[in-house]
Structures are given as C-alpha cells and as structure tokens.
Design a protein around this nucleic acid. Structure first.
Length: 825
RNA sequence: GCUCGUGUGGCGGAAUCGGCAGACGCAACGGACUUAAAAUCCGUCGGAGUAAAAUCCGUACCGGUUCAAGUCCGGUCACGAGCACCA
C-alpha cells in the first residue's frame, strides 16, 4: 500500500469510472463556482505554474466540496493565438493540427494531476461551437453600438505583423515578442469599453479582489476631473469657421481652470486633424516636416521623460475668451492626440512642461497663482495651494474655488463646462492574423458594412490558408473565404479579413462553461444567472489590466443587452505567486533554469509534489524553486502511512461518549486546534500554514504514542480526522488509506471535520509576566482568572520581588489569556 | 518623476485585534539505535555574553505614539510592481 504513482493511477481510474466529480445541478448544497484561468495549449508538458495554480486551487475546491458545497469546477483551453501560428510558420504544421494534438496531451496530463475537473463542461475557444458565439457576441455588440470601426493611430507590432490593444503594449514594446511598437494610422475594429469606464471604476470597491489588482485597474482607467474650455481661432487675420460656417471652437481639457488667465499659448498634437486645419500656408512645410519627425521619434524616445521639448508654430492664434488676448497655437508632440481633446492650453507659469517649452521658444510667462497674496514664488509654481493674482476680476480667490468661478463664468458664455476624462481607450480587437475567430462582417460596395446573418454563423475559419506573414491579413489572400454575397442586397461583397484578439475569446468563457453544449443560444439566461458569477477565480497577476478588465466590461455589456442579470463576472479573486527558477530568475528554456513537474511526479507521486507546492511557498508570493524541502514531505507522508498501519486493525467505533484521560485531552486539544486552523488557512489560500498545523498534529500523536496509555479508539479517530484534513492536498494517498482503514468509498464524500469549541478551552494556561514590557517570568493560571486574581498571584510570587529590585508598582495590566505587564518605577 | 507594494535567522517562511518575535520545515551540529549505512528517534540551533546562567542587543534605517510596536504614525534607504510629457 506504500504510496506511489501506481496509487495515483488506481484512484484516477476509479474516480473516472464512478463519475465522482460529475457536477450534478440538483445535488444539495450551495452552488460554488470555482475557476482557474484556462490555459493555452502549448506543445510542452504542464509546467510548474500550471501545477501551482491548478493543483492547489483544486485542493481548495476539494475542501469546499467536503464542506457540503455543490462545487462546479470546469477546465478548458484558450486555444486560438499567435504561438500556434508562429509554430506553423516555422515548421509547416497547421495550427489546428498542433493545437488539437496539444489539447489532447494536456487533457491527459491534467487528469494525471488528479483534479476534480468535470470534463463534461470542457470548452476550447478554437472550436466552431465556441467561436460561433464569439461571432454572435460581436454582432450583438455591433448592433448595440459597442463595436465600431474607425481610423486611428494604432499600435503595430512589426514582428507579429498585427495591431495591438493599448493594454498589450508594455513599456512601448509588444507584450508577446518584446519588439518596439510602431504607430500607424489604420482603420480597425474597436469595442467601446470607455462607455463603461465609470462603472468599471465604481464596482471595484465591492469586489473581493487583491487591493493591488484593483489599484492597477483604477490606474488603468485613469479618471481625471477637470473642465473643458474653448477658444475661438484666428487664421490669416480671419476668424476660423467650422463645416457649418459657425465660428470654430478649439476645446481643451484642463484640471487647472484656475490658471486660465495665465494662458499664453495653446498646443495641438501634430498628428491631429485640427492641426492641419490650423496650419497656415507659410507654416505648412515646417509643420509637415515636424509631423514626420515626430512619427519617427515617438517610437524611439517616447519612453524618455527628460527628452527635450520640440514644436512648431502653426501660424494661427487662439482668442482668450475672458481677456481677448491673442495667443499663438503651436504643434508639439508632448500633447497626446488620443487623450482629452488632443489640445492643451499652456500656462507656463504653473506647469513644468509648459514652462520648459515656453522658455525654449521664448513665449510669454504670466504668473496667475501665488502661494499668498503678493508672494513672488519661483516659477514654475506648481503647488496646489494659493490665491489668484494678475487675473483681473478673479484676483484674491483661493485657487480651488477659482476653478468653479472661472468655469461658471465661461459656461455663461457657452465656452466652458466641468468634465471628467479617462485614460482608458476603446479596445482595439481586430488582428491581422490567421489563427483566431473571423470577424463576422461583410463589406458591400453599395451597402457598406453588413453583419453576417445570425443563422449563417459560424463563419468558419478556412483550413487551407497561406499564413506566412507579410503585414496583410492572411485571410485576405484566401479567395474562397473572402468572396461572398451581401446579405442585404445580394451583390458581390467581401468578408472582413481580420480575426479577433484572443482576449475577446477569454472575456466571456466563464459564462459558457455551465452551458457549454447549448447550440441554440450563447447560454441560457436563467441557468447562467443561477450558476454565475464565478465565486472564486484563481490565476496570474499578469492579467490584472487586460483579461480581468475586458471580462468585466463584457459582463456589463451583456447585462445591458439583457443576456444576464449580474454586474461582475468574478466575485472573489486570488492571484497565485510566480515560482522562479532555482537561480531566482523567471523560468525559461533559454536560461536553462526550468523545473519539470513530470520528473518529480514520476519519482514521488502527484500528492507529494502537490503538498510540497502547498507547503514550500506563501501561495500569493511564490518564489525560487528549491528541491531541499521535498524530502520533508516524503517524511511527512511516511509518518502518516505508519500511523495508518498502527490503527488499521483497531475496529472503527463511535467515540462520542467516551471519557478522555489527561493525555487524550491534550491530544484532543491539538486535534481540534488543527481542525480549526487548517480549515481557516486552507479557506484563505494559506496552504503552507495549513500543512504546518497538520505536521504539528503528527508530532503530537507521536508524543501521545510514546507516552503509553493509548486509547485505541481515540487514536484511530484522530488519524482518520488527519486523513480527512489532508485529503484535499493528497487526494490519491488519502483515498487509499481511507480504504485501508476499511472505510467506505470515497473519502471525498465524507463531511469535513468540525472542531469542538469545548475541547479548545483549557483549564489552565501559562502566561508571561512582563515588567515594563520585558518578559520576566511565567506563571500558570486558571483560564477563567480575572485581573485581581492574577495580580495577587504575581505579587506573591517570590520571583516578583527579585525582578522588581526595589522599584514600586505604578500600574498592573492583565490581558486576558495572554500576558500580564507590571509598570514599575 | 508619480502611485502602490515589500523589507523578519544560513534558507523557505510563521506571528487574525498592537500583547511572550522566529510557528512549521530545510540546512547545520551533537547524541541514541546499527558491524556499517539508510531509515527512525532525542537534543542544540538570531547575535553578543557566560563554565553554565544572569544580562544586553535584535523584525532595513532614524524618530514618534503606547504599559506594550514586526504590527500604528512621520521621515530615510533598498528592492519589486503599475503608470509615465494624461494637460
């Protein structure tokens, strides 16, 4: 019966045959949806990160199951994406073939992990029965004005040959391949996530998520409260008009409307349309040159904040609405086209960047805020406190109040209002790649863009496609795919050649699992309202700004389209830490510091490996891998095995009425303490301390046995309880021992142990006696003792006078059940 | 630059509310058993100090609040993460 991989296989087979982990919607118990982020089916075997994430979350969900919850625990594959396509380009093996093969391998490995996944609910995003609904979702978003196409400056990865969302650009580089991103003007599909910016922010506090992750999302959304104020413009001595012949208003966003009287120039982003409109004939050549300069430069030194300011005068002027001053309009790349209105009012006296720019180009600098009236603070003065000066009618007003006063004044002239701005941009979802969900749109020469009729979904991804990258969408070269009829007028039309960002696939998969076989609908509304949201979601912290934000957005959009009735997809979230290589670096093949779980599992068995992962790290921290603690787990499991040997011939009996000796009581205390703390620790993903408590219990059992006077029935009860507590971490081993003890199948159908509060109450406890905060000696007191009793006891202790050394007692403090402190002087 | 984390023995890490710092384990050292080894069991294990005690110091650093601080407050440093010309 000695534990080994054979035991793993034996029980995996039995579990599968008996459908132990089959989810039964009608089973008693509160529904609990436990989900790990699904994985990408790569060719390699499961890596340590998979094991760390999946096996320990599985332990958590096993405990929940034993606690009586009806646990829904599915698994699937995020199967579209670039690696398969790149692999295909390198080897000629079609992405579909390699992906399906990899999925089969991973399924097998995941089963060998011994997790409670119910494979009946499996999904893979590359299968038509999944991406059909991805396409359907796209069309619904389109119909609800949440998906649209626009020409914009986008992030282009020259190596991946595709555009990327803002979230996929890390430090100016491609999230996937680390190449420098190029900015291009292109017409692309976007999802209007910004419409939900405020709600995405508002719902964060109520989520049981790591604070850090909420912070990252808050940051990413980047709410900024300010005002929009407008200027009229003059070009070549004449007022500039818009298309309708009305005076053109140049609108800027500012958080510092209080400094409005100090505006000495206005800046527009060089690549913006408004810039072209403002440029005069004389300045045209120079602006054109500058625009080219910035489009190149932005890619090279966009990261440098110390970079010198550059800019060119457009030739036009803005008219200050309050004092009528004519201020020059410049084009400069320190203004970002995509943020706010892409136009900035410059107040060099009170902004570092404007000051630097004005100094370099000799523009006026007018002080309008002073720390106190009459103060000549050094410029630029950017402190957020002071009063207005040089501001005509606004002089003397406190700067924060001045914001309202000035904006109100502008509002009466229809030249200003309060405004909230967000850093978040709409989500660019089209990709010029092959291995993804085709965008279900048709381009008709006469009808324009027309969605594929829903009954014609899915638009199948063709198999025979030349996907060698050349900057164009591979599907565009596949005539049989591209050519179609317009659903509206029947004329010859073309399909959209792009595929969707794989983050779209993963932004709603958690909603498909519970109804994964539904061929009529994306999912049944009633059913999904019952099964979702996900109660516990576990995955890497690297998704804090991307996947988790997108999923929240899609959930809210679906709610507003009437598909479901809840606001947030993931109620509670845990990030596992990252296991590094033994050298402390991130594991990678090129570094040669990878650790292969398979070798350990083959040698020690899945349970020993799982327990080691649980015990060796603080779960949310992770850390460098080391073999050194592994033997300790082997020792630990051997001790359990010996205990099982010790008690297996003791008949099972009801111990509820028996009288416990002093030794029994001591062990019973440890047993109940272990139940209490191991349960609480496992519940909050503190697996290392949960295992530590079980080790303490084993130590206590050892002492109990050595002391003699063993109560057999009680010993057996203690060992059985230990097996139950350990079962979530070592499912195969404990199932085996449970059987060895002659108990009925399965240990996972047993109730989770409950602790007895009474057993945790000790008659007598030892407390420390401190003098002025330092431990002096210790005394035993009855648990129920009050302060007077303890004071009396302490003062009569011979060690007390000695420790006091002639000082007198100022104050006596007794903290119940913990310690006593004597303040002496 | 801004924002947020983190900092505890030789190592991995504990320490719900401010209440005996270092649980549990690894490594190391000493011992028992053994012809020997493995396995198992017992002991020591933050530093200084001592024959042993006593005693003093100690949770990155400096200061504060408190009877009492790893924990709270202010400042400094280091590392990590997020954002970064965001108006």
């Amino acid at each position: 019966m000695s534990y080994s991989v054979e035991i793993d296989r034996k029980w995996q087979k039995k579990w599968e045959e008996s459908e132990l982990y089959k989810f039964d919607p009608n089973k008693d118990g509160e529904k609990l949806y436990c989900l790990e982020m699904f994985s990408y089916p790569s060719g390699a075997n499961l890596h340590l990160g998979h094991w760390y994430n999946y096996s320990l979350t599985d332990s958590w969900s096993r405990m929940k199951r034993m606690q009586g919850y009806n646990v829904f625990h599915p698994m699937g594959f995020d199967a579209f994406g670039l690696p398969a396509e790149n692999y295909a380009i390198k080897t000629g093996i079609h992405p579909q073939d390699s992906t399906l093969k990899n999925i089969a391998t991973m399924e097998k490995q995941l089963k060998e992990m011994g997790a409670t996944f119910d494979w009946n609910y499996e999904l893979a995003t590359c299968m038509p029965d999944y991406y059909k609904w991805n396409q359907w979702l796209f069309i619904q978003l389109y119909k609800n004005n949440l998906a649209y196409r626009k020409n914009a400056l986008v992030n282009w990865c020259p190596k991946c040959n595709t555009v990327l969302a803002n979230e996929q650009v890390i430090d100016g580089k491609c999230e996937r391949c680390d190449s420098e991103i190029v900015r291009k003007n292109m017409t692309q599909w976007f999802f209007a996530i910004t419409k939900y910016a405020q709600e995405l922010l508002d719902c964060l506090p109520q989520l049981d998520w790591p604070e850090k992750t909420k912070k990252i999302q808050t940051n990413w959304i980047g709410r900024s409260e300010g005002s929009e104020v407008s200027f009229l413009c003059e070009k070549d001595g004449k007022q500039l008009l818009d298309e309708d012949g009305n005076p053109l208003k140049l609108t800027v966003f500012t958080t510092r409307a209080d400094t409005f009287m100090g505006v000495t120039y206005v800046v527009v982003a060089p690549e913006s349309e408004i810039c072209a409109k403002l440029t005069t004939e004389d300045q045209k050549a120079e602006i054109e040159k500058y625009r080219e300069f910035t489009s190149k430069a932005s890619d090279i030194d966009r990261m440098s904040t110390t970079r010198e300011k550059t800019g060119v005068f457009t030739g036009s002027y803005a008219i200050h609405p309050l004092n009528g001053r004519k201020v020059p309009i410049w084009a400069a790349d320190y203004v970002i086209a995509g943020y706010g209105t892409g136009v900035v009012m410059a107040v060099p006296a009170h902004d570092d960047r404007d000051f630097e720019f004005a100094t370099k180009f000799g523009l006026d600098i007018i002080r309008v805020v002073a720390s106190e009236e009459g103060a000549e603070d050094e410029l630029p003065y950017c402190e957020k406190k002071g009063v207005l000066v040089n501001s005509d009618e606004f002089n003397g007003i406190e700067m924060h109040k001045a914001i309202d006063v000035i904006v109100n004044k502008l509002a009466t002239m229809d030249m200003g209002s309060k405004k909230v701005n967000y850093r978040l941009r709409d989500w660019l979802i089209s990709r010029q790649r092959y291995w993804g969900t085709p965008i279900p749109m048709i381009h008709c020469p006469s009808c324009g863009i027309v969605p594929v009729p829903e009954e014609e979904l899915p638009v199948l991804l063709p198999y025979d496609v030349e996907f060698k990258p050349d900057g164009e969408s591979p599907l565009a070269k596949c005539d049989s795919f591209m050519n179609c009829k317009c659903p509206s007028c029947g004329a010859d039309a073309k399909r959209d050649p792009d595929t969707m960002d794989t983050f779209v696939d993963s932004s709603w998969y958690e909603l498909r699992y519970p109804d994964n076989k539904n061929s009529d609908k994306i999912f049944d509304k009633e059913w999904i309202n019952k099964m979702c949201p996900v109660d516990k979601y576990v995955g890497g912290p690297e998704h804090a700004a991307m996947h988790l934000l997108y999923s929240r957005f899609i959930c809210k959009a679906m709610r507003d389209m009437g598909l479901l009735d809840f606001d947030e997809p993931f109620t509670s979230l845990v990030h596992q830490g990252i296991i590094l290589g033994p050298d402390g670096n991130r594991m990678s093949k090129s570094r040669g510091n990878t650790v292969a779980p398979d070798e350990y599992v083959a040698k020690y068995g899945s349970d020993v490996f799982r327990t080691y992962l649980a015990f060796g790290f603080a779960y949310t921290e992770g850390g460098p891998w080391s073999d050194s603690g592994l033997q300790a787990i082997v020792k630990f499991t051997n001790r359990i095995e010996r205990l099982v040997e010790d008690v297996k011939n003791i008949p099972s009996s009801d111990i509820s009425g028996i009288t416990l000796s002093k030794e029994d009581k001591e062990l019973n205390y440890v047993l109940n303490y272990t139940i209490k703390s191991a349960t609480a620790d496992t519940d909050r993903f503190q697996f290392n301390t949960a295992i530590a408590r079980m080790m303490e219990l084993i130590n206590a059992i050892g002492k109990y046995q050595q002391a003699g006077n063993v109560n057999d029935a009680f010993l057996r009860h203690t060992v059985e309880t230990l097996l139950l507590l350990y079962a979530p971490f070592a499912p195969h081993m404990t199932e085996e021992y449970w059987e060895v003890l002659g108990n009925s199948y399965s240990i996972f159908n047993q109730a989770w142990p409950k602790f007895d509060e009474a057993a945790l109450v000790k008659d007598e406890i030892e407390i420390a006696v401190q003098i002025n905060g330092r431990v002096s000696f210790k005394v035993d007191i009855p648990t129920t003792a009050d302060s007077d009793y303890v004071e009396n006891l302490v003062k009569n202790d011979p060690r007390f006078d000695e420790a006091l050394a002639g000082r007198s007692v100022v104050k006596f403090i007794y903290v119940k059940g913990r310690l006593a402190n004597v303040v002496a002087k």
